[in-house]
Design a protein around this nucleic acid. Structure first.
Length: 860
RNA sequence: GCCCGGGUGGUGGAAUGGCAGACACGACGGUCUUAGAAGCCGUUACCGUAAGGUGUGCAGGUUCAAGUCCUGUCCCGGGCACCA
């Protein structure tokens, strides 16, 4: 049922159809496995207090257009939405106001939901999920347990930002210029006990499987760079002081071994103390202290100037016995390779800079183009070439030398080929309240061993432990049946003050008797319950980072209410992974890499049937303010979607967001441009609806519409259909505008022609389309199609325009019959007075003829 | 420093190596109107009255033909940054 307005009154039409869709359950995605499916996914938002930003509906409109078009094309479409609702702002709000973060979060969610509904997105709201809902995070915890029992989760001391004044841990983004963002107090690095996920165990697969996904090249390259695979060799250098054994280094350039003139170890290297001679002790100690005080940030920030100190010891070059002084310098990082290098200043920029600074020798061992010609070589030379000054290897190509030298040293047990990755294990805990609690209880070794007998399949091969004040605690996973482990109520959301989360102050929740078979717990203040499975323990106080919930949400949409599994295996099989995933490029590395990691673990666990979560990925571009600057409150250039919906309607906003330019481009918002698309929608209305509110009298079942209009319709169906599939919405809209302009000029229009236009427009401007579709006599939603098909025979013309060039310059056009030959075309050109003038008195040298397109006559 | 992406009218942008500027915005003129709004019809890259010439950041090159391919260079945006 349509509305009764006579003019295009979007403020009546849009709410009307939104409530129709809701009561009709138009967007429900049935688990009808007999139909082909299409799964279109948006990156779900963090429901901030500020509400929807104009950037949100950009990507969401794109997936909505695809979803609606696929629906009309007969596919079973899954197009869900949910909330990534754990996060810092809600916690900060709770600290400030003392109210539970959940209540503020729920308010924000309902505001977001209202705004999304006002945009008319075809989400199946019955599949809505919320990462802070215990029914959801129960499975986040369950997945953590899968990682845990596979030995992919461990505990380690890791440095975090600590602010003594605020007595709290800060996230990277809360630290600005070495002070806290709040109050500008000094911050320092402090080691805290952290959960870490062993993502490095999947480095090779995360890299290799990038070849199987349809992603933007730039995003693939960013992930490749982040994983940072490099092939090289680990080499053992004998130390002059033989009692100390060997020094192991990693190098990608074993071919330059003869050019090594010194060694460097990181200040944190375990052999620093042993290698430091008594006379160097003071200098080394001072240097180590200085390096330790530097943060990671400073260490990289001060990259311009290298620093180091001589240890007093020497290593022996395995290929030629040269003595190499061992230096300690912070340009070598303990976290990569072996934390020690052989320095080849002639062929490495960093070693060169250091060698010059400390006057260390530089020996060239790879021939550069300049040195090959006898000129003085420009060092450092990092390019390719033949080996020189390299004993038996002299004259070899560098690539060959790499293999030979590595093989030689391998034969002598002094080296082996290895692969290193830049990727580090993932720091997976936060000292916060508003996150998923870890389903872990810390128990004594004796109790752990007792539990191990009953729960062997839940435990990692190596127990996870930590030691505090001489006592070692063992990580006991909660039984799966006892999940979720919910967040307890707390008195205060303020951090504990010791660097632990506020949960550390909830003694009743923290200190417990736990039944290791059932996971039941009672506060330790109460008497121990009867039974051998009851043991004493304390809960983990860290919570999971925001990434956790977003790592697997695309799976939960498939079966959001399942209480027995992440999702039903049959439905995981049917819906599979998203066919299209749209979101910002700011998640190119972390979110997408973490989610791929979890997905692969779930694949290995047999939970999901495919090894990659996101087949096709697309990044929408950023919408800038009117001034071409990034939108921000402080600049005052923020566009509020609510205001546009009120002034022009949701359909106009959707259409304009897509018309602004290519989806992937960064583009400025132009408030005047929106009038253009609004006028277009009004024009479509007027062409369909007469002044009296009835169907425009020019539309009729058997109208004699111009042949030109029919042909253009089929061209438009073709172009719009193809452009939607390729996510080229701006050109699709422009084609519909061209069609509407032609439609307007026609005095008679077939009803089917008008209906086809409405169907093509429906994914873009669904409210208007539903209204017109109904008024032209249809009962069911326009969403149910079927999608118009173009007739290829209608596209062929009998006459076509041929562009004529003389010497490559445009000199005229000819209308010629299809199938015109080159000779006929040249003859026609000669008969055309304008073109003939340029040919008069000239000799034709060459003729280029592209049938149906161009005739280029080259003269003289 | 390294790796990407991009520079096209007054503006957003369009263009399988084949008419540069589609489609819009804005501007100007016309029509309708008592007047306006809306709608409709024109014009709108630059120089030139015109014929014509010149034009896709800049300089070259390949080609019958280059916004598109190649080389160099400048500018803007993004990512990474002592990873041996």
């Amino acid at each position: 049922m349509a509305t009764h307005c006579k003019e295009y009154e979007f403020s009546q039409i849009e709410p009307h159809w939104q409530s129709f869709w809701e009561s009709d359950h138009t967007f429900r995605a049935p688990n009808d496995t007999s139909k082909p499916k299409f799964y279109a996914l948006d990156m779900f938002p963090y429901p901030s207090g500020a509400g929807l930003h104009i950037g949100h509906p950009e990507g969401y409109t794109a997936t909505d257009i695809i979803s609606r078009a696929k629906h009309a094309q007969g596919l079973n479409v899954l197009h869900p939405m949910g909330w990534d609702a754990f996060g810092l702002p809600a916690e900060q709000h709770a600290v400030k106001t003392g109210t539970h973060p959940a209540s503020n979060t729920q308010n924000n969610i309902s505001n977001f939901k209202r705004q999304l509904k006002a945009l008319g997105f075809s989400y199946d709201w019955e599949r809505e999920i919320d990462t802070t809902d215990p029914r959801y995070y129960r499975w986040t915890q369950w997945i953590f347990l899968q990682l845990f029992k596979r030995g992919l989760a461990y505990v380690d001391e890791r440095p975090v930002w600590w602010c003594p004044e605020l007595r709290t841990v800060l996230a990277n983004e809360e630290v600005v210029d070495g002070t806290s963002e709040v109050g500008h107090y000094p911050v320092e690095r402090r080691n805290l006990r952290q959960w870490v996920l062993r993502i490095t165990a999947y480095a090779e697969r995360l890299l290799a499987d990038l070849k199987d996904v349809d992603w933007p090249d730039s995003t693939k390259r960013m992930q490749e760079a982040w994983i940072g695979r490099s092939e090289g060799a680990e080499l053992l250098f004998e130390l002059e002081n033989k009692s100390l054994g060997d020094l192991k280094v990693f190098t990608t350039r074993p071919d330059t071994l003869f050019g090594a003139t010194y060694m460097v170890i990181a200040p944190e290297h375990p052999m620093v103390a042993a290698l430091t001679t008594p006379e160097q002790r003071d200098a080394v100690e001072a240097y180590r202290k200085k390096a330790a005080a530097k943060s990671d940030l400073e260490r990289t920030d001060l990259a311009k100037e290298k620093s180091g100190v001589f240890s007093g010891s020497y290593a022996i070059n395995p290929v030629n016995g040269t003595r190499l002084p061992i230096w300690i310098a912070d340009y070598v990082l303990m976290g990569y390779g072996t934390g020690a290098i052989m320095a080849v200043p002639a062929h490495d920029d960093r070693d060169y800079e250091f060698a010059v600074q400390y006057q260390l020798p530089i020996i060239q061992v790879i021939e550069s183009p300049a040195s090959a010609e006898g000129a003085s070589p420009k060092l450092p030379y990092t390019g390719e070439g033949k080996l020189i000054h390299s004993g038996p290897f002299t004259g070899l190509d560098w690539r060959e030398a790499k293999k030979r030298i590595t093989a030689d040293l391998t034969a002598q047990s002094r080296g082996k080929a290895t692969v290193n990755y830049k990727l580090r294990d993932w720091l997976f805990s936060r000292q916060r309240y508003w996150g998923e609690p870890f389903p872990i209880v810390w128990v004594s070794e004796a109790d752990y061993l007792k539990a191990l007998v009953a729960r062997k399949s839940d435990m990692p091969e190596q127990p996870v432990t930590y030691t505090n004040q001489g006592v070692t605690h063992f990580a006991l996973p909660l039984p799966e049946v006892s999940l979720p482990l919910t967040l307890p109520d707390v008195q205060s959301y303020l951090p504990s003050g010791t660097g632990e989360s506020p949960l550390a102050n909830v003694t009743e929740w923290l200190q417990i008797w736990i039944n290791f078979e059932t996971g039941q717990a009672v506060p330790a203040s109460q008497p121990k319950p009867e039974g051998a499975a009851w043991i004493r323990g304390h809960r983990e106080t860290n919570t999971m980072p925001q990434w956790a919930g977003s790592c697997w949400y695309y799976l939960r949409f498939i079966d959001p209410k399942n209480e027995r599994a992440v999702a039903d295996p049959k439905l995981l099989q049917y819906w599979g992974v998203p066919d299209l995933y749209v979101g910002g490029a700011e998640h190119a590395v972390l979110h997408l890499l973490y989610a791929r990691f979890w997905h692969k673990v779930l694949f290995d666990a047999g939970v999901v049937p495919q090894s990659e979560p996101f087949k096709k990925l697309f990044h929408q571009g950023i919408i800038l303010g009117e001034d071409g600057e990034k939108m921000s409150k402080s600049r005052g250039n923020v566009v509020n979607p609510d205001a546009i919906i009120a002034s022009h309607g949701a359909d106009t906003l959707r259409l304009y967001l897509m018309f602004l330019g290519p989806l992937e481009a960064m583009k400025p918002w132009n408030p005047r441009g929106i009038e253009g698309v609004h006028r277009f929608l009004q024009k479509v209305w007027r062409e369909c609806i007469g002044e009296d509110g009835g169907v425009n009298p020019k539309i009729s079942e058997n109208a004699q519409e111009p042949a030109e209009l029919t042909k253009l319709l089929h061209e438009t169906i073709k172009k719009v259909t193809e452009d939607i599939d390729a996510l080229r919405f701006n050109t699709a809209i422009s084609q519909m505008m061209i069609f509407a302009n032609t439609l307007q000029k026609a005095s008679a229009v077939k009803r089917t022609t008008a209906l086809a236009l409405i169907q093509l427009l429906a994914p873009f401007a669904p409210h208007l389309a539903e209204e017109l579709w109904a008024r032209l006599g249809n009962q069911a939603s326009v969403l149910f199609g079927p999608w118009p098909k173009y007739d290829a025979s209608k596209l062929v013309a009998t006459e076509i325009k041929l562009v004529v060039q003389v010497n490559g310059k445009h000199r005229g056009e000819l209308m010629v019959a299809v199938g015109t030959t080159q000779d006929q075309a040249v003859a026609a050109a000669n008969e055309n007075a304008k073109i003939a003038a340029f040919l008069a008195g000239k000799t034709v040298k060459r003729v280029v003829f592209v049938p149906g397109k161009i005739l280029n006559i080259v003269v003289e």
